[in-house]
């Protein structure tokens, strides 16, 4: 199995303050990896380094096979990003949104046409293809946003709280889509506050004060911390420091 993300003592300091303190971890291709931590633990800083937006102070990291120091632009081309707030353009139609993002990622006209047809068919949006996105139910918008985050066939998709606040049925439809995508070899990197969302990941890391203090499958972590749920694991870890 190939490695999608590999870091070695990755560190970022701002003046005297160490936001990310020598984190080392590896994510496999096709894995759904949950990247957790309390508010202010350093998650956002770590992710910015991984997606090529912030240069590390020290340490190593390779994302999708590219070096975060020398190949930041190549990283950006090979990853997708979706956040809870990541908005599709509500005033553009489903088709126009796909075309827009396809264009941003430099897809050729023919590729965009094929991708649009594929996304619209997979999501069952044929009748809505020429309706504005603002008129779609939230669950559909979210699945469309996810599909569009993969319009350029990225190796890794980064997601920020992908299913916060949605109803339980929509949330599951969405996770099934994530499972399917991961099953086809795309790596999924999820950050979230929602511990019940974390339980859907194959493996999880938890950051406390800039360090990764725990890592493993949800099941391993629950055993290790003698906890019933990930919520309990998190509380024990963060409070116990």
């Amino acid at each position: 199995m190939q490695t999608a993300i590999k870091t070695e003592s990755l560190t970022k300091t701002f003046g005297e303050f160490t936001a990310v303190n020598a984190i080392t971890f590896e994510v496999k291709e096709g894995e759904i990896f949950g990247f957790l931590g309390a508010n202010g633990a350093g998650k956002t800083t770590a992710i910015k380094m991984l997606i090529g937006l912030s240069r590390p102070t020290s340490g190593e990291a390779k994302v999708a096979g590219f070096d975060v120091y020398k190949e930041a632009e190549l990283i950006k081309q090979n990853i997708g990003y979706m956040s809870q707030k990541f908005s599709l353009y509500e005033d553009l139609t489903v088709y126009q949104n796909i075309r827009f993002y396809g264009g941003i990622y430099g897809l050729k006209r023919k590729q965009i046409k094929e991708k649009s047809a594929q996304i619209i068919e997979t999501l069952g949006l044929t009748e809505q293809a020429h309706k504005v996105v603002g008129s779609l139910p939230q669950g559909w918008k979210q699945r469309l946003a996810f599909a569009i985050s993969g319009v350029h066939d990225p190796k890794i998709i980064f997601m920020d709280e992908p299913t916060g606040g949605v109803d339980p049925a929509t949330r599951r439809q969405f996770w099934e889509m994530i499972y399917q995508t991961a099953n086809n070899g795309t790596t999924i990197f999820v950050t979230t506050h929602y511990m019940d969302e974390a339980e859907y990941c194959n493996r999880i890391s938890i950051m406390v004060d800039g360090r990764i203090d725990a890592m493993g499958t949800p099941r391993d972590l629950k055993t290790q911390f003698e906890a019933e749920s990930m919520d309990e694991v998190f509380v024990k870890l963060v409070r116990g420091k």
């Binding site: 309390a38 508010n39 916060g164 606040g165 919520d231 998190f234 509380v235 409070r239």
Partner: peptide
């Protein structure tokens, strides 16, 4: 408790 981490929620 929306948007608040698990410790603060508890």
């Amino acid at each position: 408790t929306t948007g608040v981490d698990a410790v603060s929620r508890a």
